[in-house]
């Protein structure tokens, strides 16, 4: 995964590992710029996640890749070929819609076989491939049912099976788990990873859920206002957010300015000391406890510290609830510290 920042030169080499490439893509709808100078390479056989808040351009990017909308300018390559203006039916991509978009007047098997019929796969082989694909998603027993009779999770699997059955060059998932309840959502993350591993498919996943992105991605691309903010593997991006937007999106909640530099620390990496500053700590801020919230696994301690200006800076420290140690109360004067390797310096 190499997603260049919007300012970097577009990659011109179409290497064999690229399943799809976006080169200088811009998409405007009237006055609204949905995608603004996107350069992105989707690598073969991996799960690439487009992550960001609503309106960041992630869904538009996916729809351009699928061919449902044509970019205002720029080039999209699929498997090295220019596909910018290719209609969706000529792209051979499997798409799972947020609403699943199952054909209500067809059985599960007919839904899954729809694309195979269009590809003139002979009846016998078609039947076998439909059965195999349904088995892959664990729904072999529901082949004769209408989609309406199925639960949300089952419908989701049918949509997945329908997209996979055509043996697409790319599998596109648009917020595939957002309509499922929390427990099922976590199950399906692992399930999609398993299916991806078994099939070796290249997957592009759109989500606004950072946990989903972190767990499922080989590569994640954080987007905001039509631009790529940062990209890389979850293990690269999560501990080293490049800017305040990415940091906030990934759950960094403490931002302090020190010597003209913007620093951030995750709540669980802030420690509270009642004594003087620990030796070697990068941050050592005098602070006042404003509120304590018990949350089961941890306690959230809200504090304020003096910033560079007149405004007090709010801080959040998450202490493990079962930890023996300081027991701060509202009004306490404490020192907030963090280990140097926990403090991330942001570009802006």
């Amino acid at each position: 995964m190499t997603a260049a920042s919007p300012t970097a030169a577009p990659s011109t080499a179409s290497t064999t590992a690229a399943a799809a490439e976006f080169i200088d893509i811009r998409q405007t709808f009237g006055d609204f710029t949905a995608v603004d100078g996107l350069n992105l390479t989707v690598e073969q056989g991996k799960i690439t996640t487009l992550l960001g808040p609503s309106g960041c351009g992630k869904t538009t990017t996916l729809r351009m890749l699928a061919g449902y909308t044509t970019p205002t300018s720029g080039t999209i390559r699929i498997a090295g070929e220019d596909a910018t203006r290719l209609p969706p039916e000529k792209r051979n991509l499997g798409m799972v819609f947020q609403s699943y978009a199952l054909f209500p007047h067809m059985t599960v098997a007919d839904n899954v076989g729809f694309g195979l019929k269009l590809r003139r796969v002979p009846v016998e082989e078609r039947r076998k491939r439909v059965a195999d694909t349904l088995d892959l998603v664990g729904l072999g027993h529901l082949a004769g049912q209408r989609p309406k009779k199925l639960s949300g999770g089952q419908q989701q699997r049918v949509a997945l099976a329908r997209a996979i059955a055509i043996r697409p060059s790319l599998l596109l998932l648009d917020e595939p788990l957002s309509n499922l309840d929390a427990r099922l959502r976590v199950q399906m993350r692992a399930e999609i990873r398993r299916i991806q591993a078994e099939t070796g498919l290249t997957v592009v996943l759109v989500t606004h859920d950072q946990d989903e992105a972190l767990e499922m991605s080989d590569a994640m691309v954080l987007m905001r206002a039509g631009r790529v903010m940062q990209s890389g593997s979850p293990a690269e991006v999560f501990p080293r957010p490049a800017n305040r937007f990415v940091a906030e999106f990934l759950g960094y909640e403490n931002f302090v300015e020190r010597d003209g530099r913007l620093l951030t620390v995750r709540p669980e990496h802030l420690e509270i000391s009642t004594g003087p500053a620990t030796e070697g700590a990068r941050l050592a801020l005098p602070a006042t406890v404003t509120r304590v919230a018990y949350r089961g696994v941890d306690r959230h301690i809200a504090l304020t510290t003096q910033g560079t200006g007149d405004e007090p800076v709010p801080l959040i420290a998450a202490l493990r609830a079962d930890e023996t140690g300081p027991d701060p109360r509202p009004g306490d004067q404490v020192t907030v510290v963090a280990r140097p390797d926990r403090v991330v310096e942001l570009a802006g």
Binding site: Y68, P88, E89, L93, A101, F114, R162, I166
Partner: peptide, 15 residues
Amino acid sequence: ADQSLEEAARGLGSS
């Protein structure tokens, strides 16, 4: 009739 149904059919290869 959800418009994404038609899009889904297009994506699967329908004209």
